[in-house]
Amino acid sequence: MLIILSINPLVSPDPGLFIWSAVAFLILLFVLRKMAWKPITEALTERENFIEDSLNKAEAAKEEMALLVKKNDDLLKQARAERDLILQEAKKIKDQMIADAKSTAAKEGARMIEQAKLEINNQKAIAMADIKNQVSTLSLDIAEKVLRKQFEDHKKQEELVGELLKEVTLN
């Protein structure tokens, strides 16, 4: 090996240069390892992790967003359904109320008519009684007047008393 290498100065390694290059290379290796490679590789790994993390987060955010949108849609749908339901119920109540009012009004009307009728009858009865009274008073007055006229002369009165006395003796 050494014989082959010593043929040409080009291929015979110079020990001085070998030592210096080893020293230079080892210094370079140790200095760069401390000063450059460690922070650089760490920064690279950190950045890569950060990017991957960010991508994952973005993906998660996207999913969450989709979920949120879906939730919103669901909520909207639900709200709409609820609104429809409420409207329907309100309509029902309204109808019910109208129907109730109608029936109440009818009943009230009937009751009032009934009462009116009763009142009319009462008034009629009162009026009739009144009329009867007046008729009897009137007839009594008339009778009194008639009787007074008849008994204006004394003879007639005695005749009547005689007649009455006759009747009483008969009995």
Partner: peptide, 21 residues
Amino acid sequence: PFDISITKNVVSLFISVFVLL
């Protein structure tokens, strides 16, 4: 004698190390 001179290659080596640093 054992030659450990700072030759042209050694200087250039130092320059390259300096450049790299």
